[in-house]
Design a protein around this nucleic acid. Structure first.
Lengths: 332, 332
DNA sequence: CTGTTAGCGCCTTCAA
DNA sequence: TTGAAGGCGCTAACAG
């Protein structure tokens, strides 16, 4: 059922029908009676415009492309996609996803394809918060960076506020009476992420603010088994921390396991806080207090930025990281 | 840069260029020289066809819609999306995602929109393996059901082979010398999933095959905290299981916690197996032996089905569930 | 073997 | 206030 059909049924020309159905009736000063007839016809025929035809004519697709390394498939940041989807929907757009699996060539292809599809804009997302170089295909395109940024470009970027997150983590500890003997588990990983550095800055500053300082950094990859091994060794060597700030919830899980192995009770013997705010945090016993990575919020912000201001405002948006309260820090 | 531009540059008509660029040169018996010229021209101009125009003409979009309740955003089954994406790509299609968040109205809208977009087919996916009624909007559409099925329709469906999975779980236990004193944790949940029933059938049959039978079902929701509470109570009441079959990895995590609470060692004192094969299984200590839910495989199968045979073959495809070996069953 | 012609469904000047 | 005409870029009969 085409626009023409509707027009015929309402006894007008396609032009008139087009105006009315696109909300330009007033501008064109079309008689209310005609409007009514056309709308009724469209309704009865349950008319829906053909997007391809419209796109061909207007070269706008009301679609936005999200390209990412692993976000879509990975459990952690798929929330970014959800957030983006919701925001897009609110703007009357839909989303096309491309996952590069970390392959730069594939990534280029995906971007080209999306451009071919005439997406109205592209969100470029990464699993890890990092300082990157945007792929060349993205230059001079309407795009927003999600969970990453690039100093050499003026594309807007959306990242979590890791510095503030670091401060919050320490504040949770301090609220539980822990200010000395605080160790960080994880530390700076080899890969080019920026989260660790900023969080550490926040942690150190917050500690300094209460007249203390970081006792040590226990280095390990940000994974359960590595964290377990590292903390286990630390405890074996006689380490007796009062508080542990873990770089993510998986690290915290490893720390929990190591503490248990040594007969130390989380909260009562050692306070633990972490970053992520994933489901895992709520699965642990006792429930883990964790600084939330606001993925959904970030995703929707990115899309808002992309679709919002006609002229994209450059610069990075730092999204606050709220706190998910658990019971891994004793109350006092 | 349009097809016309290419044609002009190569000194031919748009038609000829179209034939060549669509690989129908042989069929049309176009001279190799001309072909070469056209391809060169297309290359130099880096010509890319306008999809909207093509769609308008052919009413085929080389896109497929995936609509789901929560799969895309949820950590568990986002792999279904990844699998589907890969398969679609292999067929030269791309994927559009719609998440209904479980809202039936929204779901209808999403389906309508996809049909408007002229997707070549729809994959309808659910987080929970269940017996459903497909939304009416899907009737008489080219569609495949993913992780669910509907007896009242003849749409093809792809689900995990939970019965065989149940048998595998028990076989892992038996291989570890455990045949008596096997309890199931989780059991049939209130919601309309079909996984529990089939797995239980498999479990009982496999147990019967070695001359044993199920000791009991420990009922609880399939979540960490509920499982912990249930198993904790069971142990408090003097239960001393030899083997635990947990309905998913989160349930197993809760069981681990309860066993630890009672000073029982996983593997040595109590063998544990589970379903899901999620990352969580590899995080637990000792590593959990788990029957893998082959989400990615299912996703790609669904797309293959959708795009494969011109006439969709109805019926359910049961995808085998492989085993992820851990150390939660003692070797012997 | 190649070009001409005719739309796909929609929007939008231009004229009436 | 409404209609006629043209074209977005591409494909596919149908002629030559």
């Amino acid at each position: 059922v085409t626009l023409h059909d509707v027009a015929v049924r309402a006894g007008v020309s396609a032009t008139t029908a087009s105006y009315i159905l696109n909300g330009r009736s007033d501008e064109m000063r079309i008689s209310p009676a005609t409007q009514e007839r056309v709308r009724a016809a469209a309704d009865e025929l349950s008319y829906r415009p053909n997007p391809s035809a419209r796109n061909l004519r207007t070269s706008t697709t009301r679609s936005i492309g999200v390209i990412s390394d692993l976000v879509a498939g990975g459990p952690f940041a798929s929330q970014m996609i959800t957030g983006a989807t919701l925001a897009a929907r609110a703007h009357g757009h839909y989303i096309v996803i491309g996952e590069s699996q970390g392959d730069a060539d594939l990534e280029g292809v995906l971007i080209e394809q999306m451009l071919d599809q005439r997406v109205d804009g592209i969100v470029y997302a990464t699993v890890i918060t990092a300082d990157i170089s945007v792929p060349p295909a993205l230059n001079h395109q309407r795009a927003v960076l999600l969970n990453c940024f690039d100093h050499d470009t003026d594309l807007p970027a959306v990242v979590p506020d890791d510095y503030q997150g670091g401060r919050s983590a320490v504040e949770a500890l301090v609220a539980g009476g822990v200010r000395d003997g605080v160790h960080v588990v994880g530390g700076r990983p080899a890969s080019g992420g920026t989260a660790a550095g900023l969080r550490l800055d926040g942690i150190c500053d917050a500690l300094a603010a209460v007249g203390s300082s970081l006792a040590s950094e226990i280095h390990c990859d940000w994974a359960v088994r590595d964290a377990f091994a590292a903390v286990d060794r630390f405890l074996d060597q006689g380490g007796r921390p009062a508080g542990l700030v873990c770089m993510n919830d998986r690290v915290a899980m490893g720390a929990y396991q190591a503490l248990a192995e040594h007969g130390l009770a989380v909260a009562d013997d050692v306070a633990v806080v972490s970053f992520d705010g994933s489901e895992l945090a709520s699965w642990l016993r006792p429930r883990l207090t964790s600084v939330v990575l606001p993925y959904a919020e970030m995703g929707s912000r990115a899309v808002d930025l992309l679709l919002g201001a006609p002229a994209l405002e450059a610069g990075v948006t730092r999204v606050p990281m709220p706190m998910a309260e658990g019971s891994s820090v004793a109350k006092r």
